[in-house]
Amino acid sequence: MNKTVFVGVLALAGMSASVAAAGLLDEVKTRGKLNCGVNAGLVGFAAPDANGEWGGFDVAVCRAIAAAVLDDPNAIEFVPTTAKTRFTALASGEIDVLARNTTWTFTRDVDLKFEFTGVNYYDGQGFIVRKDLGVSSAKELDGATICIQTGTTTELNLADFFRINNMDYDPVPIETEAEAQQQYLAGACDSYTTDASALAANRATFEDSANHIILPEIISKEPLGPLVRHGDNEWGDVVRWTLNALIAAEELGVTSANVAELASAPGSNPEINRLLGTEGTLGEMLGLQPDWAVKAISAGGNYGEIFEKNIGEATPIGLARGLNAQWTSGGLMYAPPFR
């Protein structure tokens, strides 16, 4: 009997010990691997290629963090998540950071106890339809059957949009991107709705992509960004400033091509020097090496390079920068100063 109590107390003590353990940053360093939650498959944002190598816009954020912390952009364990499983995976500690086109909302930030570390893509919810449906505006979708991914903000936006416009619709809830495509392409839904960027990514994979249009209405604000658990501010800072470093690098003209040269010796621009660690101790403050940002930028380039390579106009997805241009060219991408 005494033994049972003893084991119980021991286990309880073990539990509390693990909660009070050192910060996630140290844990990731000792583990030597970053557990990154990504989309289970959305071309351009996160998808494995023919060799099983993960790539995409969100994956690039993971790679930059792994490079900054572990000096190896490939030291990552990618954990594919669905819209439904992603928050449980993050809250339970299965993943260190979630970079899976996730919308920053009040409840997720405050009530679900997550911390959004910034925005890597300003998005909005749109509708995709077949051209031969003869619909040119979302306001004409009264009575339509619409496929949605369940467990997302899109579900709530959709309900609001149709209620406000006094229209009727038939929602078909769907678990994954692939199933949504199957139903939409078979004509089981008239329209598929999700973030406009994801629609463009989906359309790029259709065989007859020219026969589908994305309707002009954007019915919501969807700032997408990486998030971490509440309460570990050091780790949150690492993720936040790695993302900021990528954005600032584009603004300052630091690219994957010239970063090595710029980092070899202090240059004339003090902000570049501070960013790349040739001046000041910003890296040390974060608990990282002085050249953390150099490694992050070398991993996949600055924000602009990542955008163009994965989802930019030269790719099949063909997204324009739009809101995601630097603030200096009329967009919303604005990194706080590195000082």
Binding site: A83, F87, D111, T150, G151, P173
Partner: peptide, 21 residues
Amino acid sequence: IAVGYMDITGTLGGITMNQTG
């Protein structure tokens, strides 16, 4: 939920759980 039928696992155990955490 595999076919998107909204049973109680889909509503209470699916969307409600996800939206309220």
